[in-house]
């Protein structure tokens, strides 16, 4: 009888509690965020930049096209930017394509002009190159006088491929490696659109120069790290010079997530 009484009381309590619990209602709003990586390189440049050497002064002093290319970067991720010299490979993967020669049959006239004879100069220094180990981290140095051959502005070339430069080579912005330390080997995400001041890490003005010299051996041509000369005499021996003709090549600018 006692147990029955307790059980009855417990059931009453449970029943009343269930029926009269605090009233609550809920509604869920689930937010899904899809952050897609955006790397955007806006480039202002002529379709073709011509260097016509038809005057002896131009051979001596070279031809420079100032501000021929403007590179504007927008990226939502850490990024690197580099330039690489390329051709269609008519004369070999690391040489300009010879479109036509001007009838020279001299054995010292060389049709294989290295892609690295093209020099670049960037107006804004690379502020993400602390981890660079080579002699030249970028192309921000001044063009060297014709009397002083140097590889500081010589275009990076890698066997005709667009493979990224190593830590010894030149980048326009950022560098090889993924240290995760700002200023070492990457540029932080951002855009040229919300930058202030005259200098910006997201805005690069590029000058181009070709200096054939006399004889036309292109003394500024150097290998990827700028340490070894690739002028026509160094490569082909004394007496070599550039065969007159029309040559073409192209510069590929590559913006990629830091790596």
């Amino acid at each position: 009888m006692k147990k029955v009484g307790l059980l009855t009381a417990a059931m009453m309590i449970a029943g009343m509690t269930t029926v009269n619990a605090q009233l609550i209602d809920e509604k869920d709003v689930t937010v899904t965020l899809d952050l897609q990586p955006v790397l955007q390189l806006d480039m202002s440049t002529p379709d073709q930049i011509e260097f016509v050497f038809d005057d002896i002064d131009e051979y001596y002093a070279g031809i420079t096209h100032y501000g021929a290319t403007i590179l504007k970067v927008s990226s939502t991720v850490s990024w690197d930017l580099y330039a690489v010299g390329r051709s269609t490979g008519t004369n070999g993967p690391e040489f300009w394509d010879q479109q036509i020669d001007y009838g020279n049959s001299n054995p010292n006239a060389q049709p294989n002009l290295p892609l690295s004879l093209l020099e670049l100069r960037q107006a804004q220094a690379n502020n993400g190159s602390g981890a660079a180990t080579g002699g030249f981290a970028d192309y921000s140095g001044a063009f060297s006088p014709s009397s002083v051959p140097a590889g500081g502005n010589s275009l990076y070339v890698n066997g005709g491929t667009n493979t990224a430069p190593s830590a010894n080579d030149k980048y326009i912005a950022g560098h090889a490696g993924t240290s995760g330390v700002a200023g070492q080997d990457f540029m932080e995400g951002g855009s040229y659109m919300n930058q202030n001041g005259v200098n910006s890490d997201y805005y690069y003005v590029i000058d181009y120069r070709i200096l054939p010299g006399l004889p036309a051996i292109f003394p500024m041509a150097h290998d990827a790290d700028g340490a070894t000369a690739e002028d026509l005499v160094s490569v082909n021996g004394a007496g070599a010079y550039a065969e007159p003709g029309v040559y073409t090549m192209y510069v590929q600018y590559i913006l990629l997530e830091d790596q």
């Binding site: 605090q22 609550i24 689930t30 899904t32 965020l33 952050l35 991720v77």
Partner: peptide, 14 residues
Amino acid sequence: PGIFQLNVKFKLEE
């Protein structure tokens, strides 16, 4: 960059 999620629960109580 990636896909992320968060849930916000609106709770009405007496």
